[in-house]
Design a protein around this nucleic acid. Structure first.
Length: 761
DNA sequence: CAAAATGTGGTTTTT
DNA sequence: CCACATTTTG
């Protein structure tokens, strides 16, 4: 242990060794936060605390997994395994399953993911015959989520004058009714959404002091990572567990708080010292990750935020390169410029692997064009985020069968598979079932068991089909009592007819779906194997399901180890680091998002997000923006992000050739307007006007046509996809006239003048 | 009742 | 441009 302590600087060591009471570690970007947490846990263990009495809460599964591995390396696997380490959601879902009887849920409750809740909300809005443009499901969902994160149950919501008034003013008076029905349907289905996991934990602790006491005694020491991103529900759970013994250590950085849209409350970290008397505060300000230029650039940026804990993050690494800025004419060119830069950096200078590069963007939608550019240059890449494996249709379908077997009252799962594969139970029948269920206040499954008792009017044909489906599921439930998860999964896929159904689809997508389902089966088998190695006797489907429900970033080792460029959103990059980082799409209305621009607090959060992006870089940070970008199918003009001018110019490297370095923001606007390339295609001169070209050859260097005077060999031109280039040759006549242009980022291209929208510079 | 065709509308970020 | 919803057709 001595040896480990010596690897820490003084501040870090103090933070690790202080265990007397509450402590707050304010950890600047790259300041060795994870190292402090892992060594602190190792230290606690060495002090004699048993591993099962330590609770360590992280924000992502990945963070938990990594920390566990690092601790295992110090203490050995046996000890590390017994720690309570995981996300808030996974840890407290475990506790809730164990204590389910106290809160009126079955211990095999289903966890609804965001799309399950949304689909239930849609159904409820429809049943209430409300306009889904007034009660937009997404909006309703986020309001309910916010309420839950603030620990406002549907009952409290209903009784809260302020909320009810505000809904009336917002012309959505029935929101409370939707909330109420939604909650009752969840309960009826034995299901919790993500927010319920935290809300119900709070209710459990609030209403059952003896249980709270049990966990207070159990968890002798509590650590929380990324405390700046906790919401009120999470904050209160932690407070309840710790307020007596005060053995708590939270780690965070207010400058990296980027989840307020999900209810994260920055006050949690700001108020921490007031809640825990005698709390010690440790500041980690030395950045070990990045060069001085990167740290200074990031500091100068975040300095523009009003609300923050002032601290001085500094680097003693080398000065390094300045933060580069690349301007492009289009998103297309931007992507190519990034790809070209990666190739170039790999050729020259230090030896970089592909894995040393990351491309970060604000929205997932931006990945497509980057992907294309990298593929064309044969640069291997991997994309994080987007639709995860478990969100794919075919996977959700199979999982829905699993869910139904474990908990047949799960309405969303039932609705999903009652007619998949198609067995002649259509919308009309399903609607009748739903109506009967809600009328009698029972679950759909209950209705299905005795349709006649619940006055469902159906003909005998439909009745037979329903019975067949019911018996299929009942048969599965019976089998599940004896079979392992692995065998059960295989059985379901086969007997439900899913696999046959998929095999009939010979299209590319169909084949890929089949492969995905097989991948899932493999995953179940792997899960069984691991659990058996750990000594479990019978590995159940329920166990598999409980784990899988909270899995999101599950990209496994085989991809991680491959040497590939990483692409992800800035949010997903939090906590990671790369030698070289590209942050792309630095334009107004994109980064910061248009939804944030009118709200100063939201803009500050976007600025923190940008801060997070920059501070991921160890050696080189490259910022790019485009002057036009495809948006909803058509290109639109963009101006550079306000954040670019927030960075002190001393740390920036702005090429003077492309942009007037003093005024990068307003200067380009005039230029755009001069160039037809950036106006709507319908305002373009028609092709027939463009193509009156006399015989033009390389030698003649004649003017190509009257509409584009100056289009001669040697002229500088601009293309709205390829950017700037030089005309190398012009040949052909009339509609076949074409120019050979050497573009800065794309090399030589032959362009048919009939189609190419060229502008002479 | 299911598959195909045609509208429509809409975009942050995620446990 | 693309995912989703509704309408049309078989």
């Amino acid at each position: 242990m001595e040896e480990y302590l010596n690897q820490l600087n003084e501040n870090q060591r103090e933070a690790v060794m202080f265990c007397e009471g509450a402590s707050l570690v304010v950890a600047g970007a790259g300041s060795g936060k994870t190292r402090v947490l892992t060594y602190k846990i190792a230290w606690l263990l060495q002090q004699g605390l048993p591993p099962q009495s330590i609770l360590a809460l992280t924000f992502t599964n990945k963070a938990a997994r990594e920390m566990k591995e690092r601790i295992a390396a110090i203490t050995g696997e046996q000890v590390a395994r017994r720690l309570w380490m995981g996300t808030f959601h996974s840890i407290f879902s475990r506790i809730l399953r164990y204590e389910a009887e106290y809160i009126g849920y079955p211990s095999n409750f289903t966890i609804y993911d965001a799309s399950d809740s949304k689909s239930l909300l849609k159904a409820i809005i429809k049943e209430m015959q409300l306009d889904d443009k007034v009660y937009r499901p997404g909006m309703v969902q986020s309001r309910i989520s916010n309420a839950k994160n603030a620990l406002i149950t549907w009952k409290a919501y209903e009784q809260n004058k302020e909320l009810v008034e505000s809904d009336i003013n917002a012309k959505i008076p029935l929101l409370r009714e939707i909330y109420k029905r939604y909650q009752s349907r969840c309960q009826q289905s034995g299901a919790m959404d993500f927010d319920d996991l935290l809300l119900q934990t709070n209710i459990l602790f609030r209403d059952h002091p003896a249980i709270l006491e049990k966990y207070r005694r159990h968890f002798q020491y509590v650590l929380v990572d990324e405390y700046q991103d906790t919401n009120f529900a999470q904050h209160l759970i932690v407070q309840r567990l710790c307020e007596e013994h005060g053995r708590i250590c939270v780690v965070g950085d207010d400058a990296q708080s980027i989840y307020s849209f999900r209810g994260a409350n920055i006050d949690n970290i700001l108020q921490f010292k007031n809640i825990y008397q005698g709390c010690r505060i440790f500041k980690l300000e030395r950045n070990y990750r990045s060069t001085q230029n990167i740290v200074n650039a990031a500091n100068s940026l975040i300095d523009k935020n009003k609300e923050q804990i002032r601290k001085t993050v500094y680097s003693e690494n080398e000065e390094g390169n300045k933060v580069a800025v690349i301007a492009s004419y289009s998103d297309y060119e931007e992507a190519y410029a990034v790809a070209a830069r990666i190739s170039e950096m790999r050729m020259n200078g230090p030896k970089y692997d592909y894995a040393d590069f990351a491309i970060l963007y604000r929205t997932n939608a931006q990945s497509r064009i980057l992907e294309e550019a990298l593929r064309k240059r044969n640069i291997p890449y991997k994309i994080y985020g987007g639709l995860s494996f478990y969100q794919r249709k075919e996977i959700k379908d199979v999982i829905s069968y699993f869910r139904l077997i474990i908990n047949p009252h799960d309405e969303e799962a039932l609705k999903r598979v009652i007619n998949y594969p198609t067995r002649g139970i259509g919308d009309t029948t399903v609607n009748k079932l739903v109506a009967a269920a809600s009328q009698h206040n029972v679950s759909m499954w209950t209705v299905l068991q005795a349709p006649l008792e619940y006055t469902v009017s159906i003909n005998s044909g439909t009745s037979n089909k329903l019975t067949a489906f019911r018996e299929l599921i009942e048969g599965f439930i019976e089998q599940d009592k004896t079979l392992s998860a692995e065998d059960m999964a295989a059985l379901v896929v086969k007997q439900s007819g899913i696999i046959n159904n998929l095999l009939q689809d010979r299209s590319v997508e169909g084949v890929s779906k089949t492969e995905n389902v097989q991948e899932l089966l493999k995953g179940v088998a792997e899960y069984c194997e691991i659990r058996k190695e750990e000594g479990a006797e019978q590995v159940t489907l329920a166990g598999f399901l409980a784990e899988v429900a909270l899995l999101t970033d599950q990209d496994n080792d085989k991809e991680e180890q491959a040497n590939k460029v990483t692409m992800m959103t800035v949010h997903a990059a939090k906590g990671l680091e790369f030698r070289n980082v590209f942050v792309v799409g630095l334009e107004e209305d994109l980064f910061p998002s248009q939804l944030s621009k009118d709200n100063p607090r939201a803009v500050e959060e976007e600025r923190r997000l940008f801060y997070v992006a920059i501070t991921r870089a160890e050696q080189n940070c490259i910022l790019t923006y485009a002057k036009s970008r495809y948006r909803n199918g058509q290109s639109s003009i963009c101006s550079p992000s306000r954040f670019l001018k927030d960075i002190d110019g001393r740390y920036l490297d702005i090429p003077s050739s492309s942009v007037n370095s003093f005024d990068i923001f307003a200067s380009m606007r005039d230029k755009y307007q001069q160039h037809p390339a950036f106006t709507s295609p319908f305002q373009q001169p028609q092709p027939s006007h463009l193509t009156k070209i006399e015989s033009a050859t390389i030698s003649t260097s004649s003017v190509a046509n009257i509409d584009l005077p100056g289009l001669v060999v040697g002229a500088k031109v601009r293309h709205d996809r390829f950017g700037e280039g030089e005309v190398m040759a012009i040949e052909g006549t009339g509609g076949n006239a074409k120019a050979s242009v050497d573009f800065v980022h794309f090399g030589q291209k032959q362009l048919l003048l009939k189609f190419a929208k060229l502008t002479v510079l």
